[in-house]
Amino acid sequence: MQSVALDGHQKEDIIVCEDVNKWYGEFHVLKDVSLKVKKGEVVVVCGPSGSGKSTFIRTLNRLEEHQEGRIVVDGIEMSNDIRNIDAIRREVGMVFQQFNLFPHLTVMDNITLAPLWVRKVSRKEADETALRLLEKVGISEQAKKFPGQLSGGQQQRVAIARALAMKPRIMLFDEPTSALDPEMIKEVLDVMKTLARDGMTMLCVTHEMGFAREVADRIVFFDQGKIVEEGPPAQIFANPRHERTRLFLSQIL
């Protein structure tokens, strides 16, 4: 605890965003968004729908292009250089609201495809990694099935395993439980909690405030394309400073 006072970070910043701006046509979706995430930190991004939170985390692996500002992920500058984008995508895993598993491939092939073709690992190594990850998310018996044969919760856990198979240093979650039946939400959140405890750097867009309270190091609140408030969960829940945050929390809790 002795070095904290020096400059405020004892760990390196793995994601640095400075004044990120983005427009959809004339519509200003992201307005001067600046955020730093430390290695191993769990950041929950929340806010009303249409506030730009999903768009924001999608700029971090270039599924959305930002027009102004600077994004540095794991020391790599996000630019139009395709090599930089590819390098960043190798380090960043992503889990989607609609799972986006590949329906024509088995669970096993879903997980091993990218390691085989992007990381170029051997078939044996890819299979071993996939089985280990399926065990970790608790569905190793489903390896030979197709995504359509699994429940929503199981599909989302496969999607998490698929992202982890690339051995990413950062995981992005875009509303991972919003498309799930209530009784399946817990099984996905449990996997995410395990991941957080293992020290993964995570950015989660989610409305699961229980999860945020328990796991998050920091909550970032978006409204109308801006970060209006951020801080540790205890402070945000107990004592939100911004009017919009207070309103949002009163409606969601």
Partner: peptide, 12 residues
């Protein structure tokens, strides 16, 4: 979403 998932995994 299919293409997005593939891109996010780093497939060219």
């Amino acid at each position: 979403g299919q293409e997005e998932a593939a891109r996010a995994l780093g497939l060219n």
